[in-house]
Design a binder for these strands. Sequence first.
RNA 1: GCCGGAAUAGCUCAGUCGGUAGAGCAACUGAUUCGUAAUCAGUAGGUCGGAGGUUCGAUUCCUCUUUCCGGCACCA
Length: 638
Amino acid sequence: MSAQYRLPDGATLEFDQPASALEIAERISKKLAKQALAVKADGRLTDVYVPLTDGTEVEIITRDHEDALELIRHDAAHVMAEAVQELFPDTQVTIGPTIENGFYYDFHREAPFTPEDLQAIEKRMQEIVRRNEDIRREVWDRDEAVRFFLDKGEDFKAEIIRELPADQEVSLYRQGEFIDLCRGPHLPSTSKLGDGFKLMKVAGAYWRGNADNAQLQRVYGTAWRDKKELNVYLKQLEEAEKRDHRKLAREMDLFHIQQEAVGSMFWHPKGWRLRKNLENYIRDKMVKYGYEEVSTPQMMDRILWEKSGHWDKYGDDMFTVCTHDHREMAIKPMNCPGHVQIFNQGIKSYRDLPIRLGEFTALFRNEAHGALHGLMRARSFSQDDAHIFCTEAQVNPETATFIQMLREVYADFGFQEFRIKFSDRPEKRAGSDETWDKAEAALRDAVESLGLECELNPGEGAFYGPKLEFVLRDAIGRDWQCGTLQVDFVLPERLDAEYVAEDGSRQRPVMLHRAVLGSLERFLGILIESTAGHLPLWMAPTPVAVCTITNAVDDYAAEAVALLKAKGIPAELDTRNEKIGFKVREHSRTKTPRIWVVGEKEAEERKVAIRSLGSKDTEELGLEEAVEQLAQATRAPI
RNA sequence: GCCGGAAUAGCUCAGUCGGUAGAGCAACUGAUUCGUAAUCAGUAGGUCGGAGGUUCGAUUCCUCUUUCCGGCACCA
């Protein structure tokens, strides 16, 4: 039976019988056959040695193809598992997927893998690559596969196979002595993996992501087309680590944390200026968008938190204080119940809605030790938190306005692109299913009418409602939720919020919980990392340092600083007896955006020589003009 | 919280196979008054994260503990 295949260039190849991608490649050129890693058959990735059906559209995947990395990483995981089982036969394998930049494999083994073990594993992987073992697909009977793995003591693997969907083929891939359940496809042999991989770290990870289950050892690796690509990646990573906000914050003298107050910042003068700049900026934005700022008690009786439902879900993570009369007060982990109390004062009419209440006071959450991470995850922090009390009909327009505001703010900080996640009902939640149906539908409607692109994040909503998460990335690619919008029909019910509708009836308002920046601390951390400390002029704690060349011009420099301060610009005066090169270096290292250099010449002409951070050029300007210009440039956008 | 790693001067790090520590930068003092990423010299700075144990002797070995780093879990 003859078979025809179409190639990407439109050409057709004919064979006497069904041919594999390898045979097709062979027909085209020896070189292509040698380079073939896999094949895209009618758009589906398939192994190269599998005979393809007549009429298939065939695209040979070589190393340069965009899909090659995925294959290489997937194979790296298998080769690693093979190496581990050779070196540590008491190890059980579980799963080993590819991830961004690499792969991991979760192993079960009593003894921990040491850094030396990782080196040994990596070496053995290189050996397996040299062995050039064929990687072949086999389809097994499910029960037989389960029995096979149970016999080998591979309980986790057997469990995975047992729980595969009934209609799914059980395919195993064999390379040398190693055999693993896998959907594929794979490279034709281990040598194709090449030498662009490296094991990075070991970490604990729970079986099936559940903390009640056994903890496995996850070995992370990175894999690339070749050594050169690997080295480029490692270099990038090294550079990214230098942008760590904890490191930069120390260099910039922003804040510190110490043992006596784990998870909370001691903000230094410069850091606090920065922090205030952010707060004042977003405060003005909120005024612009029709919010009222309020302030609610730092601690409130436990009873209120029980009523709201927070105690049930988060009681363990709340800090509490006992009063002399034996009342238990919770230090607020969030503002929503407080805002409802304000809403509940007096009778509200539908004419009053929407009511938008915002607050910036500090929140306290007893975050798990292992979760703490500099500014990104702290135990005390503030949010640009606000609650919009509105009618159901207002959910849609309020969402639209919020998204507009968020886009505007993110753009002001240079975040043009960000990810949006749609998180729907979690397992543990308050409110009826009907309420959730309504809330999710309302949010989905809003998202759809705005044409927002979001990814579904199943089961990750708040306990009182579904949410949108606006996600930004840190220097080394970790995702952090910053902005959020949550639709809540539950808390108004639990806390008895109501308004009088047009027909005179009492109605529950909908509550939109929303934050643009989210935690101000976290947002600052992200901003510091994304800008490598080169903050926008209007955010910088010290926008300018005035540096003298000789002490003869100290008075003139002091006058310049006085003029700046008169405009509210926190300028720094540097009259130290140091060479100008020294001063420039130091202010550059602490990321001062502008350095004004003044020497005899400038003093005589009443000018300043302006140097911008990251540039070697200088610009001369008259003193008054320079002050005016900087006053403009340090004004936050509105 | 869990798994692994780490903790030495303000910072970055070296060191001691058990005999109580060193560099560079920063700081301080003095000299130098200088034109855009490090002027020179000198001085000072550490109960080697904390507690306990082994030992004649512990920064080093052991146990516990705290904190930090990386993941995982959690994230109102």
